[in-house]
């Protein structure tokens, strides 16, 4: 279950990007250190029960990704709190922990450890990961020499090896060629079953309609509406057409 209580994330953006001490001091002396307050999330509260699949919709810049970051612990909210029951696996951007000078094998362990897997778990799942990624022949060459499709396949295989209590997904990932896309989609569906609580962000309303029990509609950092999937999706589509 996920319980979000009045989450507010406020970015302080300095008007002119100050990146050096000199600029900072000059600005300080001139009293020109001005900030624009930007509310990425404004008083967002919701409650997700165990096993629910909840979709988050909204236009670009509505605060969807920020919300996912807050829930996965990457970003601390300015105000409010998040309560989580169980381990969280964020599938936000795959392969961000890859080191291109290391081999595929080494990267499986590096990336796995970053995702919080234990050593025992990784060793036991190692063959499965390699088999799923279909990279048996290339596992001992540096990732630098992989094609982008191969990298995504490996990354997906590592990230999808767990059965988390809470899964956080930024767009359903269908990676690689057609065959692998289908395989990864199936794997994703598999992860979302077994009573996993899922928080899903997608721009594909079709997907949301198909998968989600409930929908939260965000706009400019505020919750516009939350509730039944069909109803809210309809209203969202209407609002975008105007």
């Amino acid at each position: 279950m996920i319980k979000a209580d009045t989450i507010t994330v406020c970015y302080r953006m300095s008007r002119d990007k100050i990146k050096s001490i000199k600029e900072y001091l000059v600005a300080l002396v001139k009293r020109k250190l001005q900030y624009d307050e930007f509310l990425a999330l404004d008083d967002v509260s919701f409650h997700i029960k165990k096993g629910e699949v909840v979709g988050i919709i909204g236009n670009n810049g509505a605060g969807k990704s920020t919300l996912l970051k807050v829930i996965s612990g990457i970003l601390r909210p300015t105000k409010g709190s998040v309560e989580l029951g169980g381990n969280v696996v964020p599938m936000l951007e795959l392969g961000s922990g890859f080191d291109f000078d290391l081999t595929g094998r080494e990267n499986i362990f590096l990336n796995g450890s970053i995702l919080g897997y234990s050593e025992k778990f990784l060793i036991s799942k190692y063959d499965e990961i390699v088999a799923f990624s279909e990279l048996e022949e290339f596992i001992d060459i540096p990732v630098r020499n992989y094609s982008s499709g191969m990298i995504m396949r490996l990354a997906f295989s590592i990230a999808s090896m767990v059965n988390p209590d809470i899964l956080i997904v930024d767009e359903i990932l269908a990676v690689g060629d057609a065959a692998f896309q289908e395989k990864s989609y199936t794997r994703m569906m598999e992860m979302m079953s077994h009573g996993t609580t899922v928080l899903l962000v997608s721009h594909s309303i079709d997907q949301i309609r198909r998968l989600c029990d409930r929908v939260i509609w965000l706009d400019h950092g505020k919750v516009v509406e939350q509730g039944d999937t069909a109803e809210i999706c309809d209203r969202y589509i209407q609002s975008t057409q105007h």
């Binding site: 996965s72 990457i74 964020p90 936000l92 951007e93 961000s96 922990g97 970053i114």
Partner: peptide, 9 residues
């Protein structure tokens, strides 16, 4: 930076 942006450690 990329890691810190994506995974909590």
């Amino acid at each position: 930076a990329t890691l810190i942006n994506k995974v909590y450690v």
